[in-house]
Design a protein around this nucleic acid. Sequence first.
DNA 1: CCAAAAGTTGACGCGAACGTAATCGAAACG
DNA 2: CGTTTCGATTACGTTCGCGTCAACTTTTGG
Lengths: 132, 132
Amino acid sequence: MSDELMTIRQMCDSFGVTPRTLRFYEARELIFPQRRGQHRLYDRRDRARLTLILRGKRFGFSLEQIRQLLELYEPGGRNETQIAATIQVARERLEDMERQYSELSEAIAELQTQIGDAESRLSTATRSKRSG
Amino acid sequence: MSDELMTIRQMCDSFGVTPRTLRFYEARELIFPQRRGQHRLYDRRDRARLTLILRGKRFGFSLEQIRQLLELYEPGGRNETQIAATIQVARERLEDMERQYSELSEAIAELQTQIGDAESRLSTATRSKRSG
DNA sequence: CCAAAAGTTGACGCGAACGTAATCGAAACG
DNA sequence: CGTTTCGATTACGTTCGCGTCAACTTTTGG
């Protein structure tokens, strides 16, 4: 298998995005599909990156933050200073995610409580209506 | 204490937002400060709601989603249909948060791995420079 | 071979979530 | 009592993340 090149349409179908979105990510330098003539072709790397992009978005990261994170996955020959900077950025994102993780835990518990309360108010209202 | 009314400036200072933001949230009906003449005054409830708003934002929710969630905290006399709808919306948000929670767990682990890899690449580069 | 489909590059548009004056009234202060 | 200061309102501007044409060039299929 020749690295499973995909057209933009195949990418869109399998990731649930639009061509516009893929071209936009490329313009922002988050993915770099090769070209066959004018047409874009996406390989395994591009797909891996897109997966990370979409996940980063679900966590509320900006495309720029995601772009910086993706540098971490580049084995490309960059110098120490750049690598160190990339690591530093990644550590900050990691802390964001760890904070969010623990905060989510609390928020989930609170929301469950509130839903429970609201449910009991609802059943009370339903009963009082039936008997009233 | 008379319920600790705060001016818009005091609110901004203690929450790290701008007046524009508070007025914007009010326009979108997420908070409802009282008025003394023309001036806004924020009480305990307003602060509690703002806390929830800012937290919701950190989770990537839109202001509209947050507004719907805040209805859950309203004991106000609404009818069963409305309460049931509010509960339904809250359940969906809860599922979002639970999905995000487990996905975050994975993502954190992966990111830690990547940072570790990058760090080893960095120290290797540093060593080869020292000895080369 | 010719038409339809797929893909490309601009360029403008749009909703969300505010920022940023400009202009005004009220209010606190020396 | 005048003047900063604080807040309100109105309204236009901005950034992000795409959506949506329009106008063209392939590419593919009957």
